[in-house]
Amino acid sequence: MRFSVLPAILSACLAFTGCTSGSPDRLVAGIPSAETTSSVTRSPGPVPAASIGETTPVQPDPPQEVLAWAGPVPQPEAFAPVAVTAGMPVPMERPLAELAPAEPEIMATPGPRRKIYSHKFRDAKPINFGKVSPRKYAVHGVDVSRWQGEIDWARLRTQGANFAYIKATDGGDHLDPMFKTNWRRAKEAGLKRGAYHFFYWCRTAGEQADWFIRNVPRDPDALPPVIDVEYNGESSCKRRVSRANVLEKMQVFMDKLERHYGQRPVIYTAPDFYRDNLRGEFPNHPFWLRAVAAHPSKVYPGRKWIFWQYSGSGLSHGVKGKIDLNVFHGSEQDWHAWSSPRSS
Protein backbone atom coordinates (compact mmCIF):
# COMPACT_ATOMS: atom_id res chain seq x y z
CA MET A 1 0.00 0.00 0.00
CA ARG A 2 2.81 2.37 0.84
CA PHE A 3 4.25 2.10 -2.70
CA SER A 4 0.85 2.52 -4.35
CA VAL A 5 0.84 6.26 -3.64
CA LEU A 6 4.15 6.85 -5.44
CA PRO A 7 2.66 7.09 -8.97
CA ALA A 8 0.11 9.60 -7.75
CA ILE A 9 2.85 11.76 -6.21
CA LEU A 10 4.89 11.64 -9.42
CA SER A 11 1.83 12.57 -11.51
CA ALA A 12 1.10 15.52 -9.27
CA CYS A 13 4.69 16.74 -9.61
CA LEU A 14 4.57 16.51 -13.38
CA ALA A 15 1.27 18.33 -13.55
CA PHE A 16 2.65 21.10 -11.38
CA THR A 17 5.82 21.64 -13.38
CA GLY A 18 4.04 21.49 -16.74
CA CYS A 19 5.60 21.80 -20.16
CA THR A 20 7.79 24.82 -20.87
CA SER A 21 9.85 26.08 -23.77
CA GLY A 22 12.67 27.27 -21.61
CA SER A 23 13.69 27.88 -18.05
CA PRO A 24 13.91 31.31 -16.38
CA ASP A 25 17.68 30.85 -16.29
CA ARG A 26 17.76 30.82 -20.11
CA LEU A 27 15.77 34.03 -20.24
CA VAL A 28 17.97 35.86 -17.74
CA ALA A 29 21.15 34.68 -19.45
CA GLY A 30 19.95 35.83 -22.84
CA ILE A 31 20.48 32.41 -24.45
CA PRO A 32 18.73 32.35 -27.82
CA SER A 33 16.13 29.79 -28.71
CA ALA A 34 17.08 26.61 -30.52
CA GLU A 35 13.86 26.86 -32.51
CA THR A 36 13.98 27.51 -36.24
CA THR A 37 11.35 27.17 -38.89
CA SER A 38 11.85 24.18 -41.17
CA SER A 39 12.76 26.51 -44.02
CA VAL A 40 15.71 28.22 -42.31
CA THR A 41 19.21 26.72 -42.44
CA ARG A 42 21.52 27.46 -39.59
CA SER A 43 24.55 29.52 -40.57
CA PRO A 44 27.89 27.67 -40.34
CA GLY A 45 29.52 30.83 -39.02
CA PRO A 46 29.13 32.54 -35.64
CA VAL A 47 25.74 33.99 -34.89
CA PRO A 48 25.63 37.48 -33.36
CA ALA A 49 24.55 37.49 -29.76
CA ALA A 50 22.39 40.16 -28.23
CA SER A 51 20.87 40.86 -24.87
CA ILE A 52 17.13 40.40 -24.58
CA GLY A 53 16.91 42.34 -21.37
CA GLU A 54 15.35 45.38 -23.06
CA THR A 55 11.79 45.05 -24.16
CA THR A 56 9.51 47.45 -25.92
CA PRO A 57 6.72 48.78 -23.73
CA VAL A 58 3.27 47.65 -24.75
CA GLN A 59 2.04 50.79 -26.11
CA PRO A 60 1.42 38.12 -61.29
CA ASP A 61 0.17 34.66 -60.83
CA PRO A 62 -2.49 33.54 -63.34
CA PRO A 63 -5.13 36.30 -63.23
CA GLN A 64 -7.98 33.87 -62.80
CA GLU A 65 -6.95 33.06 -59.24
CA VAL A 66 -8.75 34.92 -56.46
CA LEU A 67 -6.62 37.07 -54.21
CA ALA A 68 -6.78 36.24 -50.53
CA TRP A 69 -7.27 39.71 -49.12
CA ALA A 70 -7.50 39.73 -45.36
CA GLY A 71 -8.30 43.41 -45.13
CA PRO A 72 -7.81 45.82 -42.24
CA VAL A 73 -9.47 45.57 -38.88
CA PRO A 74 -10.48 48.85 -37.22
CA GLN A 75 -7.93 49.92 -34.64
CA PRO A 76 -8.69 51.41 -31.24
CA GLU A 77 -8.38 55.18 -31.38
CA ALA A 78 -4.80 56.39 -30.97
CA PHE A 79 -3.77 52.77 -30.40
CA ALA A 80 -5.32 52.74 -26.96
CA PRO A 81 -4.72 49.37 -25.25
CA VAL A 82 -7.72 47.10 -25.17
CA ALA A 83 -8.30 44.85 -22.20
CA VAL A 84 -8.44 41.20 -23.24
CA THR A 85 -9.00 38.17 -21.07
CA ALA A 86 -6.12 35.76 -21.76
CA GLY A 87 -7.18 32.49 -23.25
CA MET A 88 -10.69 33.59 -24.21
CA PRO A 89 -11.48 33.60 -27.92
CA VAL A 90 -13.25 36.60 -29.38
CA PRO A 91 -15.76 36.46 -32.24
CA MET A 92 -14.94 37.78 -35.68
CA GLU A 93 -16.15 41.37 -35.79
CA ARG A 94 -17.07 41.33 -39.49
CA PRO A 95 -17.11 38.68 -42.21
CA LEU A 96 -14.28 38.62 -44.73
CA ALA A 97 -16.56 39.87 -47.51
CA GLU A 98 -17.03 43.14 -45.63
CA LEU A 99 -13.44 43.47 -44.51
CA ALA A 100 -11.98 42.87 -47.96
CA PRO A 101 -13.59 43.93 -51.21
CA ALA A 102 -12.89 41.83 -54.29
CA GLU A 103 -10.88 44.74 -55.67
CA PRO A 104 -8.96 46.23 -52.72
CA GLU A 105 -9.11 49.99 -52.63
CA ILE A 106 -6.09 52.18 -52.20
CA MET A 107 -6.37 54.55 -49.25
CA ALA A 108 -7.80 57.96 -50.06
CA THR A 109 -4.70 59.64 -48.62
CA PRO A 110 -1.95 57.04 -48.98
CA GLY A 111 1.56 57.70 -47.79
CA PRO A 112 4.54 57.81 -50.15
CA ARG A 113 4.90 54.59 -52.07
CA ARG A 114 8.11 52.64 -51.74
CA LYS A 115 9.91 51.75 -54.93
CA ILE A 116 9.37 48.16 -56.03
CA TYR A 117 12.65 46.48 -56.94
CA SER A 118 12.66 43.67 -59.48
CA HIS A 119 13.65 40.14 -58.63
CA LYS A 120 17.42 39.51 -58.72
CA PHE A 121 17.66 36.57 -56.32
CA ARG A 122 19.36 33.31 -57.18
CA ASP A 123 18.63 29.86 -55.83
CA ALA A 124 21.07 27.18 -54.70
CA LYS A 125 18.42 24.56 -55.50
CA PRO A 126 16.36 26.01 -58.34
CA ILE A 127 12.98 24.44 -59.15
CA ASN A 128 11.20 24.63 -62.48
CA PHE A 129 7.67 25.71 -61.57
CA GLY A 130 6.65 25.93 -65.22
CA LYS A 131 4.04 28.49 -66.22
CA VAL A 132 3.41 29.42 -62.58
CA SER A 133 6.98 30.49 -61.84
CA PRO A 134 7.49 32.85 -58.89
CA ARG A 135 9.28 35.16 -61.32
CA LYS A 136 5.90 36.11 -62.77
CA TYR A 137 4.89 37.82 -59.53
CA ALA A 138 5.57 41.54 -59.18
CA VAL A 139 6.53 41.82 -55.51
CA HIS A 140 9.18 39.61 -53.90
CA GLY A 141 10.39 39.51 -50.31
CA VAL A 142 12.29 37.50 -47.71
CA ASP A 143 11.96 36.19 -44.19
CA VAL A 144 14.92 36.15 -41.82
CA SER A 145 16.03 35.18 -38.35
CA ARG A 146 19.25 35.15 -36.32
CA TRP A 147 20.62 32.44 -38.62
CA GLN A 148 21.22 35.00 -41.39
CA GLY A 149 23.61 36.89 -39.10
CA GLU A 150 24.46 40.48 -40.00
CA ILE A 151 22.44 41.63 -43.02
CA ASP A 152 23.21 44.48 -45.40
CA TRP A 153 19.58 45.56 -45.63
CA ALA A 154 20.10 48.36 -48.15
CA ARG A 155 21.80 45.99 -50.57
CA LEU A 156 19.29 43.21 -49.93
CA ARG A 157 16.47 45.56 -50.84
CA THR A 158 17.97 46.44 -54.22
CA GLN A 159 18.17 42.72 -54.99
CA GLY A 160 14.39 42.47 -54.83
CA ALA A 161 13.50 42.29 -51.13
CA ASN A 162 10.55 44.67 -51.08
CA PHE A 163 9.28 43.25 -47.80
CA ALA A 164 10.72 41.21 -44.96
CA TYR A 165 9.16 39.12 -42.24
CA ILE A 166 11.51 39.05 -39.27
CA LYS A 167 11.65 36.34 -36.60
CA ALA A 168 10.70 37.93 -33.30
CA THR A 169 9.71 35.34 -30.72
CA ASP A 170 8.91 31.72 -30.06
CA GLY A 171 7.28 30.06 -27.11
CA GLY A 172 6.70 32.22 -24.08
CA ASP A 173 10.21 33.36 -23.21
CA HIS A 174 12.47 33.32 -26.29
CA LEU A 175 13.39 36.42 -28.27
CA ASP A 176 15.45 36.19 -31.45
CA PRO A 177 18.68 38.04 -30.53
CA MET A 178 18.79 39.76 -33.93
CA PHE A 179 15.17 40.91 -33.93
CA LYS A 180 15.66 44.45 -32.65
CA THR A 181 18.59 45.07 -35.00
CA ASN A 182 16.81 43.60 -38.02
CA TRP A 183 13.58 45.41 -37.17
CA ARG A 184 15.34 48.78 -37.06
CA ARG A 185 17.64 48.29 -40.05
CA ALA A 186 14.92 46.91 -42.33
CA LYS A 187 12.88 50.06 -41.81
CA GLU A 188 15.92 52.30 -42.33
CA ALA A 189 16.53 50.55 -45.67
CA GLY A 190 12.95 51.24 -46.77
CA LEU A 191 11.50 47.72 -46.63
CA LYS A 192 7.98 46.95 -45.50
CA ARG A 193 8.51 44.79 -42.44
CA GLY A 194 6.53 42.47 -40.27
CA ALA A 195 7.27 40.18 -37.32
CA TYR A 196 6.55 36.49 -36.89
CA HIS A 197 6.18 34.16 -33.93
CA PHE A 198 7.07 30.47 -33.90
CA PHE A 199 4.22 28.82 -32.02
CA TYR A 200 5.25 26.44 -29.26
CA TRP A 201 2.72 23.73 -28.39
CA CYS A 202 4.00 23.27 -24.82
CA ARG A 203 3.04 26.81 -23.76
CA THR A 204 -0.38 28.38 -23.41
CA ALA A 205 -1.57 30.59 -26.24
CA GLY A 206 -2.14 33.51 -23.86
CA GLU A 207 1.45 33.40 -22.57
CA GLN A 208 2.81 33.38 -26.09
CA ALA A 209 0.63 36.25 -27.23
CA ASP A 210 1.70 38.31 -24.22
CA TRP A 211 5.37 37.59 -24.96
CA PHE A 212 5.03 38.64 -28.59
CA ILE A 213 3.18 41.82 -27.65
CA ARG A 214 5.83 42.65 -25.07
CA ASN A 215 8.63 42.48 -27.64
CA VAL A 216 7.12 43.64 -30.95
CA PRO A 217 6.27 47.37 -31.21
CA ARG A 218 2.84 48.45 -32.34
CA ASP A 219 3.64 50.23 -35.61
CA PRO A 220 0.75 51.17 -37.96
CA ASP A 221 3.17 51.00 -40.90
CA ALA A 222 4.15 47.38 -40.18
CA LEU A 223 2.74 44.36 -41.99
CA PRO A 224 0.29 42.17 -40.06
CA PRO A 225 1.91 39.87 -37.48
CA VAL A 226 2.43 36.22 -38.39
CA ILE A 227 1.85 33.02 -36.43
CA ASP A 228 4.17 30.25 -37.66
CA VAL A 229 2.55 26.84 -37.09
CA GLU A 230 4.37 23.72 -38.22
CA TYR A 231 6.04 20.53 -37.06
CA ASN A 232 9.67 20.91 -35.98
CA GLY A 233 11.81 17.89 -35.21
CA GLU A 234 14.45 20.06 -33.53
CA SER A 235 12.03 21.35 -30.91
CA SER A 236 12.47 20.25 -27.32
CA CYS A 237 8.69 20.16 -27.14
CA LYS A 238 7.69 16.83 -28.67
CA ARG A 239 3.99 17.14 -27.90
CA ARG A 240 1.57 16.48 -30.76
CA VAL A 241 -1.70 18.06 -29.73
CA SER A 242 -5.05 17.18 -31.26
CA ARG A 243 -6.46 19.09 -34.23
CA ALA A 244 -9.15 20.59 -31.99
CA ASN A 245 -6.50 21.78 -29.53
CA VAL A 246 -4.38 23.22 -32.35
CA LEU A 247 -7.30 25.26 -33.64
CA GLU A 248 -8.27 26.47 -30.19
CA LYS A 249 -4.74 27.58 -29.31
CA MET A 250 -4.29 29.36 -32.62
CA GLN A 251 -7.62 31.18 -32.27
CA VAL A 252 -6.78 32.46 -28.79
CA PHE A 253 -3.33 33.65 -29.89
CA MET A 254 -4.55 35.33 -33.07
CA ASP A 255 -7.50 37.03 -31.42
CA LYS A 256 -5.28 38.57 -28.79
CA LEU A 257 -2.83 39.88 -31.39
CA GLU A 258 -5.66 41.23 -33.54
CA ARG A 259 -7.06 43.16 -30.58
CA HIS A 260 -3.65 44.64 -29.79
CA TYR A 261 -2.27 45.46 -33.25
CA GLY A 262 -5.53 46.16 -35.06
CA GLN A 263 -4.59 43.77 -37.87
CA ARG A 264 -5.66 40.22 -38.54
CA PRO A 265 -2.63 37.89 -38.21
CA VAL A 266 -1.29 35.94 -41.16
CA ILE A 267 -0.96 32.16 -40.77
CA TYR A 268 2.31 30.61 -42.00
CA THR A 269 2.35 26.84 -42.40
CA ALA A 270 3.87 23.89 -44.23
CA PRO A 271 2.18 21.08 -46.19
CA ASP A 272 2.22 18.32 -43.57
CA PHE A 273 0.92 20.51 -40.76
CA TYR A 274 -1.72 22.01 -43.01
CA ARG A 275 -2.91 18.57 -44.11
CA ASP A 276 -3.29 17.36 -40.52
CA ASN A 277 -4.77 20.48 -38.92
CA LEU A 278 -5.70 23.41 -41.14
CA ARG A 279 -7.44 22.12 -44.25
CA GLY A 280 -10.71 24.02 -44.52
CA GLU A 281 -10.04 26.07 -41.36
CA PHE A 282 -9.73 29.84 -40.80
CA PRO A 283 -11.31 31.00 -44.07
CA ASN A 284 -11.20 34.63 -42.90
CA HIS A 285 -7.46 34.71 -42.24
CA PRO A 286 -4.74 35.35 -44.83
CA PHE A 287 -2.35 32.43 -45.37
CA TRP A 288 1.37 32.35 -46.08
CA LEU A 289 2.10 28.96 -47.62
CA ARG A 290 5.36 27.07 -47.92
CA ALA A 291 5.55 25.20 -51.23
CA VAL A 292 9.10 24.68 -52.51
CA ALA A 293 8.41 21.99 -55.14
CA ALA A 294 5.09 23.04 -56.70
CA HIS A 295 2.69 25.97 -56.89
CA PRO A 296 0.45 26.45 -53.81
CA SER A 297 -2.63 25.65 -55.90
CA LYS A 298 -1.31 22.09 -56.25
CA VAL A 299 -0.05 21.68 -52.69
CA TYR A 300 -2.97 23.41 -50.96
CA PRO A 301 -5.92 22.94 -53.36
CA GLY A 302 -8.72 25.42 -52.80
CA ARG A 303 -6.82 27.58 -50.28
CA LYS A 304 -6.54 31.30 -50.94
CA TRP A 305 -3.20 32.80 -50.00
CA ILE A 306 -1.42 36.12 -49.67
CA PHE A 307 2.25 35.01 -49.53
CA TRP A 308 4.02 32.04 -51.11
CA GLN A 309 7.35 30.88 -49.70
CA TYR A 310 8.83 29.17 -52.76
CA SER A 311 12.42 28.60 -51.64
CA GLY A 312 14.46 27.99 -48.52
CA SER A 313 17.74 28.08 -50.44
CA GLY A 314 17.80 31.58 -51.87
CA LEU A 315 21.04 33.46 -52.50
CA SER A 316 21.38 37.22 -52.52
CA HIS A 317 23.89 40.01 -52.21
CA GLY A 318 23.62 41.47 -48.72
CA VAL A 319 23.25 38.11 -46.96
CA LYS A 320 25.83 35.42 -46.26
CA GLY A 321 24.45 31.95 -46.81
CA LYS A 322 20.91 30.98 -47.74
CA ILE A 323 17.70 32.89 -47.23
CA ASP A 324 13.98 32.17 -47.63
CA LEU A 325 12.33 33.70 -50.71
CA ASN A 326 8.68 34.73 -50.98
CA VAL A 327 6.23 36.41 -53.33
CA PHE A 328 3.11 38.48 -52.74
CA HIS A 329 -0.07 37.29 -54.48
CA GLY A 330 -0.96 40.30 -56.58
CA SER A 331 0.23 43.21 -58.70
CA GLU A 332 2.25 46.23 -57.60
CA GLN A 333 -0.97 48.20 -57.21
CA ASP A 334 -2.48 45.39 -55.13
CA TRP A 335 0.62 45.42 -52.94
CA HIS A 336 0.48 49.16 -52.31
CA ALA A 337 -3.21 48.89 -51.44
CA TRP A 338 -2.80 45.92 -49.11
CA SER A 339 0.38 47.10 -47.38
CA SER A 340 -0.69 50.73 -46.82
CA PRO A 341 -0.77 51.81 -43.17
CA ARG A 342 -4.01 50.66 -41.57
CA SER A 343 -6.43 53.38 -40.58
CA SER A 344 -9.64 53.32 -38.56
Rank of each mutant, 00 (worst) to 15 (best):
R259S: 13
P63Y: 06
R113D: 08
W335M: 07
A205K: 02
Q251R: 15
K167D: 15
E188L: 12
F307H: 01
V47W: 00
N284T: 13
T55M: 13
V144F: 11
K192I: 15
G233S: 10
H317W: 15
Y261D: 14
R122S: 04
V28S: 07
P341L: 08
V90A: 15
A293M: 15
P46K: 06
P134F: 05
P110I: 06
K192Y: 15
V28N: 12
A168I: 04
P286Y: 06
P134L: 06
Y231L: 00
Q59P: 08
V28K: 05
R264M: 07
F129Y: 14
K320N: 11
L99F: 01
T17I: 10
V47F: 00
R157F: 10
D221Q: 11
K131I: 13
P110N: 06
T17E: 01
N284S: 15
F129K: 09
F179V: 02
D219L: 06
V47E: 04
K187N: 15
D152L: 06
P46D: 08
P44M: 10
Y268S: 02
G30Y: 01
F199P: 00
T204G: 12
F198G: 00
I116T: 08
M107L: 15
R214V: 02
T109K: 13
N284Y: 14
E150R: 02
R113G: 04
A70W: 09
P63F: 06
N182L: 01
G87V: 13
E35W: 14
A168C: 04
A168S: 07
Q148F: 06
Y310S: 01
D219C: 08
L191F: 11
M250H: 05
C13F: 00
S145Y: 11
H295V: 10
W305C: 01
W147S: 08
P57G: 04
F129L: 12
G171H: 07
D25T: 13
P24N: 02
D210R: 05
S21R: 05
P217W: 03
T204E: 12
I106D: 14
Q333H: 04
A337G: 03
Q263C: 09
V40W: 12
N284D: 12
D210G: 12
S340I: 06
R94T: 08
A138V: 02
M1W: 11
T85D: 08
I9L: 01
A244D: 08
K131P: 10
A70D: 05
P217L: 10
E150Y: 05
V28F: 14
F121H: 05
T56C: 13
P104R: 10
V82N: 07
K256N: 04
D255N: 07
N128A: 15
R203N: 15
Q159L: 04
R114L: 11
W305S: 04
I166G: 10
T37P: 00
A8V: 10
E35R: 11
P91C: 12
P301R: 03
L247Y: 14
W183S: 03
D143N: 08
V226F: 01
R243A: 15
V229K: 03
